[in-house]
Design a protein around this nucleic acid. Structure first.
Lengths: 198, 198
DNA sequence: CGACCGACCGACCGATATGGTCGGTTTACC
DNA sequence: GGTAAACCGACCATATCGGTCGGTCGGTCG
């Protein structure tokens, strides 16, 4: 059979674990849950990562690098609709490659409470920073729109992951998230009847 | 102090419980969690609802009535942008009144897997039905957009709930969700699905 | 061939969390 | 002050938790 290398297997484990952490939080996610999601026994999983806490740390590290990569690609652009579109694209692409990690990256934005994985670092701010949002000072509408767009992305990421629509949905997901940000297009504001084709 | 009647207290409990079920799933939500969220002891909570399962049934019933109410208000309208806008408004208003219940109503759309509260009934389809979506036959873009809009709503509902911005955010939330549905379409706005291969 | 090794598992352990009960205490109201 | 409901601390039996241990399987190397 195909022989995926150790690193690939481990990264797969980390992504699944991150998806579970994003959905249920760390405390509510049991090692057995992760093992089931990966298709291993609990002992088999703990052979890859020696403890649940080691798993958590590895996930945090992985999320951190993803966040950094996203920020690096976006930071140099001036704020505005163009940057927003590009940022969405970057995040969506990341979500395509690592759905769970991105879901976990977005999770703090959506939860605001108990899902803390690491207290010291705050990579969650990274994704808001990519959109130039500081909850304290930014205008409420902008905050709502960015959170909404990220929420849509998170939900769609997980939904597409459970099905196998990740690649098929990509363009629609990006368009949906961008539209949620509400950048008015000059003209063409009239709602046209959008018929549904089978 | 204020003397809220029994029914009001119980409805508050049900809404909080529904919010937890939506976030963590039924199995992962302990009675203690709900008690903490409501501000009661575990025994005190079980004085209102005799068992966790009774709590679940009551929540399911409550969600069912909310779903029915939403559907009744929307069903008579013809499909199209206008109906979408109205449906969003109705759902957002419901979410304002019962954040947890609506979050749970939307949850099945976002999760697609383990969060089943009741196997027999499927009130989750109700909210999709309000938007005229059947995942099997509807065009993928429409499916993505509706799921995305509902995801944004779910996230924003919970986020606004943890803060106290529910009323302040209402208009922005509705606008964000409606925009996510993508109705003003200038045709060329969608990014062409070029290279996705990594 | 046999020694060796990493991947993996079933069974198990102590510790903790779980749903639920019970007796008693507070609270609201007459 | 009496009454009934609301509420709680302590407790119980059980399930689940994270983690360990001994061992199996399928390669690979000499």
């Amino acid at each position: 059979m195909a022989r995926p290398f150790r690193q690939q297997i481990d990264e797969g484990i980390l992504d699944r674990a991150a998806a579970l952490f994003a959905r249920q939080g760390f405390a509510k996610t049991s090692v057995q849950d992760i093992a089931d999601a990966v298709g291993l026994s609990k002992a088999g999983l703990l052979h890859h990562f020696p403890s649940k806490d080691a798993l958590r740390e590895a996930v945090v590290a992985q999320v951190g690098t993803v966040a950094q990569r996203v920020l690096d690609e976006v930071r140099h652009l001036p704020f505005g609709a163009e940057r927003d579109r590009f940022a969405i694209d970057v995040v969506v692409d990341s979500a395509l490659a690592h759905p769970g990690l991105v879901a976990l990256l977005i999770a703090p934005v959506t939860r605001a409470d108990g899902g803390a994985l690491a207290e010291d670092v705050s990579p969650e701010i990274a994704v808001l920073e990519a959109f130039g949002v500081d909850p304290a000072t930014t205008a409420p509408e902008r905050v709502v729109r960015v959170i909404g767009a990220l929420g849509a992305l998170a939900v769609l990421t997980l939904a597409a992951q459970t099905d196998d629509q990740t690649t098929a949905w990509r363009a629609h997901v990006a368009a949906t998230c961008f539209d949620a940000l509400g950048h008015r297009r000059p003209g063409a504001a009239l709602p046209s009847p959008d018929q549904v084709e089978a």
